[in-house]
């Protein structure tokens, strides 16, 4: 929340998920349960984590910082991918 005195912020949404080739046991468990309770048509399910960063616009490279935070901290490039967009 911004007040008249505080600098304006932009929100960036970062979605992090496991790479498709990496087994996600949580996603598999949810999908198996859906199948078991009658939703046989569900053939795929992905689990991801959503982060929303509120970054000060003033004087800073907000988009660049959001990208750097996502790449270097929120996602592990060994096992995960991320998508980023400005809200």
């Amino acid at each position: 929340m911004s007040s008249p005195d505080s600098p304006s912020c932009s929100d960036y949404e970062v979605i992090v998920r496991l790479k498709p080739e990496v087994l996600d046991p949580e996603a598999r468990a949810i999908q198996e349960t859906l199948t078991r309770i009658g939703f046989a048509g569900v053939k795929g399910l992905q689990v991801s984590k959503r982060y929303v960063l509120s970054i000060e616009d003033q004087g800073a490279n907000a988009a660049g910082h959001a990208e750097q935070i996502a790449r270097e901290y929120l996602a592990n490039p060994v096992s995960e991918t991320f998508q980023i967009r400005k809200l």
Binding site: L18, V22, L23, D24, P25, E26, A29, N76, V78, S79
Partner: peptide
């Protein structure tokens, strides 16, 4: 990397 166990 170390990920969640296969068995959950």
């Amino acid at each position: 990397a170390l990920l969640r166990n296969r068995s959950r």
